[in-house]
């Protein structure tokens, strides 16, 4: 231990301290700082690239899923469109049929109504003519019947009899 203390040289100690601290500071500024920064930058770069690749892969997957979904949707839409069209066609046809039926019915009804009224008119006309004819026949008959007194009285009596009866 004594030998150690004897050997100790203050000058060397001071020089070593000064030179070494100077070296640390210089290297920190010109070497370690830039080297460590570059290395961590590079490591970050590699990490980023890996992350990006991973992201791209995920995105690709998403894109694929999207595509499939869109395709499915399109297919479904086409199906619904077709279905709707079919339904529409059916409704149009059935509506047209109904309309036609109604129209036909109406025409038939009108025709029947016209026929009915024509028939009535013809019947009433016939009736009038029959009545006139009957009246004129009855006039002629009555004129013949009521030519003598006796016959007239008898008629009245008959009529009266009938009246009482009814």
């Amino acid at each position: 231990m004594d030998k150690l203390i004897e050997q100790f040289s203050l000058g060397l100690f001071v020089w070593q301290l000064v030179l070494f601290i100077g070296l640390v500071l210089l290297l920190k500024k010109f070497a370690w700082g830039p080297i460590l920064n570059s290395v961590s930058e590079r490591e970050d770069g590699i990490k980023d690239a890996l992350d990006q690749a991973e992201n791209a892969r995920k995105e690709m997957q998403n894109l694929n899923a999207d595509n499939e979904r869109i395709l499915k949707e399109a297919r479904a839409e086409r199906d619904t469109l077709l279905k709707e069209a079919r339904e529409m066609k059916e409704t149009i046809i059935s509506e047209a049929k109904e309309e036609a039926q109604i129209q036909a019915n109406k025409v038939v009804e009108q025709a029947q109504a016209t026929i009915q009224s024509e028939k009535q008119a013809a019947i009433s006309d016939l009736k009038n003519q029959v009545a006139e004819l009957s009246i004129s026949i009855a006039e002629k008959v009555v004129r013949g019947e009521l030519s003598d007194q006796k016959k007239q009285t008898k008629l009245v009596e008959d009529l009266l009899k009938e009246v009482t009866i009814s």
Binding site: G11, L12, V14, W15, Q16, L23, L27, F30, A31
Partner: peptide, 30 residues
């Protein structure tokens, strides 16, 4: 009081210089 540039001080200085050039060149190569 002895602050001489002894052999060891000279070697420390030279090694420091060597390290400085070696590592600053390395830093530049990045």
């Amino acid at each position: 009081l002895d602050f001489s540039i002894t052999k060891n001080v000279a070697v420390i200085f030279l090694v420091g210089l060597f390290m400085f050039f070696m590592f600053s060149r390395m830093a530049k190569s990045y």
